[in-house]
Design a protein around this nucleic acid. Structure first.
Lengths: 193, 193
DNA sequence: TGTGTATTGTACCGATTGGTTCCTTACCGT
DNA sequence: ACGGTAAGGAACCAATCGGTACAATACACA
């Protein structure tokens, strides 16, 4: 029995995600967000409380979208060999760069930035990274070459792979040469063999 | 034939480095810097032009200090096996975290942050990372286990290791659990064997 | 067709941002 | 001792920051 919202909340979060992705948390100003989301201050604050709350919702959205897509790839039964899934994930990250996407990974940018002083953001970042790590672990379980690893060994290797992933995507954002990125991806593949 | 500077420029840059290291480039405000460096606006702008120029000098200082220390370790003839040097470097990074240093690596923070939109900063970051990568390469050259690699193979492996390093230090800044960091370091060591 | 209610848009807020101006201060060379 | 010159310091600047107040608006329900 009142005026309904004239925009879709999820769509607005999706748009906000792209703004934060490009500029980072601190680098994204309110005007940036308002323009990118196509709404005014009143609407934004009414719907999302404040900038940080919005960012947390964006991180959540990112995790539901980008991270889950990664996990889906890592657990894709259509690729029987788990090591192949991991390789596919890394080459995918490299592909993104050569396709012109220099933004890296939102989670990794947040990790290097505000999560250093904001526990809530840090928790959201860790949650996403842990999800990816668990996906890596699942993939390793489906890898013949790593069948002899015990649970702890798989976990440790997955932790290494997630560090590798964070490094790769961070360097991608820093516009490191394609050669270096490709080499890094290739070497991971070799090491996994 | 004029009033001399009452502070040591290098010492001031060193102090500025710690401020940027803790807060990041965008997160470090002028008042933060002034307090940390112990001088006033007039002196700072007279000596360092502006914030970005100061940051570039800080990056340069960091490279001369922290990066060169890393390279020295990677080329240390006192450790005959190059792979041991690399292991030492990674365990050192892990040690820093357990010793309470959560700041990660200034270069890596810069990589994830302003280097995405500022070419000069990006160039400085790349220079530092390349120096480290070259150090890795030198270390691999002194590793019996990697003696059969050709130049390209060594380069590729070094690129992987630098990505690993960036990931590790970025995750350290994000307060990821010690277990994960230790696992990542350990796995790198195992993979190098 | 009212009437109540939540959204929307705009004007505004104090605080803070990076940066400048300009007067004072202190040193070096003569 | 003095004069030229550069550093130090504080007041000041416009612009922007994230956030709020409130009036105009538009919808759902009766």
């Amino acid at each position: 029995m009142a005026r309904p919202r004239s925009f879709d909340t999820d769509a607005a979060i999706e748009k906000a995600m792209h703004v934060f992705w490009a500029h980072g948390y601190e680098g994204a100003s309110l005007p940036d967000l308002l323009e990118g989301m196509g709404l005014t201050r009143g609407s934004l604050y009414k719907a999302f409380t404040d900038k940080k709350t919005l960012f947390l919702k964006v991180l959540d959205h990112y995790e539901c979208k980008a991270v889950q897509a990664g996990v889906a790839l890592l657990t894709d039964p259509a690729i029987p060999n788990g090591a192949d899934r991991i390789r596919a994930m890394f080459t995918g990250a490299y592909q993104a760069v050569t396709d012109g996407d220099q933004r890296g990974c939102l989670l990794c940018t947040a990790a290097a930035g505000p999560s250093a002083y904001d526990p809530e953001i840090a928790a959201a970042v860790e949650q996403g990274l842990t999800a990816l790590r668990d996906g890596m672990e699942d993939a390793l379980e489906a890898s013949p070459a790593h069948g002899d690893l015990d649970t702890g060994g798989r976990r440790a290797l997955a932790d290494m792979l997630i560090a590798q992933y964070v490094g790769l995507r961070t360097m991608a954002r820093a516009r490191v040469s394609d050669d270096t990125l490709r080499n890094a991806v290739r070497s991971v593949g070799v090491m996994l063999a």
